[in-house]
Structure formats: structure tokens, C-alpha cells
């Protein structure tokens, strides 16, 4: 049954991802992106990585998407459809995406995965300690890097909201 749910979620994610990049209404594509992110969280929950799932929901769905929605609502011509990008740009983006996907696939296939027999629920106390330790299994650096991600999201939001002055003067 888990397999079926996994496939349903995956297919939904792919469909929404495609819709997100192909839709010309910026608000809708943000919402489709939200569905993709929720789907990822759903996958985490399926494998009982509750903490990771909840972080995914908080940081991406609850944080970044809300920030984007908030700033997009400030954009002047929000009701106009987005411009269709130039062909060579699309080509370039496609090439990069394909390369990335290829690399990931190669990495996955080349790695020898072992099937987990016991799914162990990780206690919140261990996670908390791991976050604050800088030893062997410490995560203090990634934890801090996440805050930089949020900062980047904020900068991105401001950039979207900012009027392009150069364009206006032309």
C-alpha cells in the first residue's frame, strides 16, 4: 500500500512541478510550487521522518511560500501573464536541468542502497542535541546555513517587489 501512496504522491509532485514552471500566472505557479513542497513533506512523513517533514512544511511551505506570496502581491502588474522566455534561455535552462537530473540519477544508481529493515523513530532530544553540537555528528553548521537560505528568500522577495528602474526609463 505504501508503494501506491508513494507513486500517487510522486506523480502529483511531478505534475505540479511541470504546471508550476509552465504556468504564466505567477500566483498560480507559486501555489503549484507549494503543492510540490507539501508533497516532499508527505514523502518524509511516509518514511516517518516527522521532524524533517515538519521542518519542510514550516520553512518551505509556511515560510518561503508565504513570503513569496506576500511580496508577489505587492508587484504592480501581477494580473498580466508572465513573459515567455527566449528560446536560448529555455534551452540553457533545460540543459542545466537535464544535467542535474542526470547527475542525481547516476549518483542514485551507482550507490548501493540497503533496505532498511527497522524504521527507527528518532527522538526529538537527539535531534536537538545534534543541532547544537559541533562534534562528529553535529549539525550546527547546516543549521546556521538554513538561516542564510531564509535570508536569501527574503532578498529574493525584495528583488521581485522592486521596480526595475532601468526598464522604466527606456
Amino acid at each position: 500500500m505504501e508503494r501506491i501512496i508513494f507513486y500517487i504522491i510522486s506523480i502529483l509532485m511531478i505534475v505540479f512541478a511541470v504546471m508550476s514552471v509552465s504556468n504564466r500566472n505567477i500566483m498560480r505557479s507559486i501555489i503549484y510550487l507549494l503543492f510540490v513542497l507539501i508533497g516532499i513533506a508527505g514523502l518524509y512523513f511516509m518514511v516517518q521522518f516527522y521532524f524533517l517533514g515538519a521542518v519542510q512544511l514550516t520553512v518551505y511551505a509556511g515560510g518561503i511560500i508565504v513570503l513569496y506570496v506576500n511580496s508577489i502581491m505587492l508587484v504592480e502588474k501581477i494580473n498580466n501573464p508572465l513573459d515567455v522566455t527566449k528560446f536560448w534561455k529555455r534551452l540553457l535552462a533545460g540543459a542545466i536541468a537535464t544535467t542535474g537530473a542526470g547527475l542525481t540519477l547516476v549518483a542514485i544508481w551507482s550507490h548501493n542502497f540497503k533496505e532498511a529493515t527497522v524504521s527507527k523513530e528518532i527522538g526529538i532530544n537527539e535531534i536537538g542535541k545534534a543541532f547544537l553540537s559541533y562534534g562528529d555528528k553535529g549539525y550546527i553548521l547546516p543549521f546556521e546555513v538554513i538561516s542564510i537560505l531564509l535570508l536569501a528568500a527574503m532578498v529574493g522577495a525584495i528583488v521581485i517587489a522592486k521596480t526595475n528602474k532601468v526598464k522604466e526609463s527606456n
Binding site: I38, Y50, G53, L57, V69, M73, G123
Partner: peptide, 26 residues
């Protein structure tokens, strides 16, 4: 009843905002 119950609660409720946002915008 999961081990991160309260955290999950807050994270889920943070999505609810989007519904109100969208209602206002759409």
C-alpha cells in the same frame, strides 16, 4: 500522537495563512 506533536501543529497551521491570502487575492 507523534514525537514532534506541537512542532507539527505549528508547522501545519502556518500553511493555513495561504488560504486566507489566496482568498483575499483571488
Amino acid at each position: 500522537d507523534i514525537n514532534i506533536g506541537l512542532f507539527f501543529l505549528t508547522s501545519v497551521s502556518s500553511i493555513g495563512v495561504i488560504g486566507i491570502f489566496l482568498a483575499g487575492w483571488a
